[in-house]
Design a binder for these strands. Sequence first.
DNA 1: CAATTAATCAATCGTATGATTAAATAAATC
DNA 2: GATTTATTTAATCATACGATTGATTAATTG
Lengths: 222, 222
Amino acid sequence: MNTPKPKSSRHPAVSKAGRPPAERDLAVRQQLLAAARSLFAKHGYDAVSTRALAEAAQVNPAMISYYFDNKQGLYEAMLADTFQPLMQRLGELMGSAAGGANPVRGFLEAYMRTLGANPWMPPLILREVVAEGGRLRGWFIQQFASKGGGLLTQLMTREQAAGRLRADLDPTLAALSLVSMAVFPFVAMPVASEVFGMRVKQDYLDRLIAHTERVFLQGVSA
Amino acid sequence: MNTPKPKSSRHPAVSKAGRPPAERDLAVRQQLLAAARSLFAKHGYDAVSTRALAEAAQVNPAMISYYFDNKQGLYEAMLADTFQPLMQRLGELMGSAAGGANPVRGFLEAYMRTLGANPWMPPLILREVVAEGGRLRGWFIQQFASKGGGLLTQLMTREQAAGRLRADLDPTLAALSLVSMAVFPFVAMPVASEVFGMRVKQDYLDRLIAHTERVFLQGVSA
DNA sequence: CAATTAATCAATCGTATGATTAAATAAATC
DNA sequence: GATTTATTTAATCATACGATTGATTAATTG
């Protein structure tokens, strides 16, 4: 899904004549991907029309078919371009953070920093994974159920065995609480900032992370 | 928006002849409202077509115009019917729970029980309030910014003054953490149950509430 | 029964959508 | 310049949407 492919012609291994593929610019492709990331995250898949995508990318609507077959193809290409590497990195965090002195704090911090650095991610996860009928739920679960979710629960179980996690807590629920506190503030921020009268300052992310670590670590410590 | 109103005819105060309004059955109206609550919560406003609503209610599509003017009218009537009273009750909880022996625990418990008893609510809030472009965000914020949000922050501030809340915590962030832990498990449950391999048993709600109280109260206590 | 109004239905309107096509243009090779 | 291929465009397709219309059926009153 990554190469600009002519409809139903084959690329001979050695092209002899004719205009070669651009290979250098691919400006149209990139503009479409950028528009897709921005619009899909903001409005959701269904609410974004192909015409709106084309206009945002300053491109003819037919270019979607040309480069990505159809709207779904553009969506998946956009995910492969930006979402998947990031999800993979988040998955690795769970493993790597387990090594530090305070694995829970290490994971929590890395997780929230990643979310904060990629503000398009939380709303996209919200729409396409958490919301019922989200198109990424299956893929997300497959990625994380095999990799991350279990690891996080294992981490909690290990902490409990080491006596650093309250014995009366269910490790699974503890993992859920951690994710709740780490994720929800990002997705709910636009609402929370108005309901709670927050002023989101320069150092808001730092303060939020520090606060979350304080509350969660004390909350689950033995 | 509540009376079945003929298109552009007036209801004379005293009707003299002709078929009177049913006043008894209103089965069509009720079926449409029930279908609306179910479908809008499950799939979101845009994804539900008027034809799907009519079919679910076993009713002719024109009945939507007849009883509610249009799709938006049906949506708002559905909200007025079920959502608003519940939201109002949630808002009152914030005030009433403040009186008990442990106001924070009281509010947390009442809040989560209400959410658990109305499982259609979290996904609807997710779609229509939290998600960007949600149609209820303005209304929700107006309801809660004036009533609840401030009260919860005040509650935290009072707890801090009484020495029951850690002095190094921002009361606003503490309120946000509480809402995070109380709400997120409900909206994320379908995903979490698969990612974390949870089995949602009979007493899951009780265990979740007990767990949340344990972690949060210990996490914020001085 | 005749008049009047409430309620329902089949049919259809205009619009927006995702997608595709045939033609036009651009760039490279011979 | 002729040819071949890559890219782009305007025009258009079939479908689904929200909404409305005019006709039809039903119930009640005089």
